[in-house]
Design a protein around this nucleic acid. Structure first.
Lengths: 110, 110
DNA sequence: AAATTCTATCGTAAAGATACGATAGAATTT
DNA sequence: AAATTCTATCGTATCTTTACGATAGAATTT
């Protein structure tokens, strides 16, 4: 086994889980924070800031691109990575909706 | 290798990544949504709602407990799982702070 | 054209995650 | 005491993730 049964969950549940993967590794959190702070970053800069090999950074960037939360613009000989505002606000709404659904009145045993 | 180098990241980055793991699998999203809706759930109920084996549901509950976002109260012969309001609000603040740090003015290439 | 620079991908090794059947443990019920 | 009920854990198979060295590809620079 070892394979997630995505077909038994809703689109929304699968999408939230996928978006959460963007934030589920400290390197990707660090990358997103740097992209926000710098407004644009190239892979080389990120490799200097993070103590990770260039291949590893590139792999994390690939995952963030797959999710859609960043996109890269080729600006030879470099690549400018940026937050994708559409997907970012999608994440804001998705997490916000889920996190705000719980209030103390919803709690039972505390 | 295959082992995350947590020591090169900040406490905050590691914590956000860990909290995000709670939401990074659709089954755990579904469990949290059910806990909110029902205000308390027992493992058996969850097994009925999710099309997953009892052992699998228990494993996801264990992961959510490890993160701290839920806690179980033994109420023999059952267990009442609840959202932990402290950790839940920690997640609200952590994700909120990160997600709100990006605004359109912070964007570069769009 | 050759050298340089930067990023992506390949190949690979190790660790972690996911899923489930089987079994154990703990408590109530019969 | 035996049976029943419910959850946790064990063992295991498979897939995924993380990490890095090596190499390829694409573009500018010398």
């Amino acid at each position: 086994m070892g394979v997630t049964k995505t077909e038994i969950f809703t689109e929304q549940q699968n999408r939230i889980a996928d978006l959460a993967k963007a934030f589920s590794h400290p390197a990707r959190v660090a990358i997103l924070q740097l992209l926000i702070a710098r407004k644009s970053c190239i892979c080389g800069d990120l490799v200097d800031e993070l103590e990770l090999a260039q291949a590893t950074v590139s792999q994390h960037l690939k995952e963030l691109k797959r999710i859609g939360i960043i996109h890269g613009e080729i600006n030879p000989p470099r690549v400018c990575y940026c937050i994708n505002p559409i997907v970012w606000s999608e994440a804001q709404e998705a997490f916000g909706a889920l996190l705000d659904r719980f209030t103390l009145s919803t709690s039972c045993c505390n």
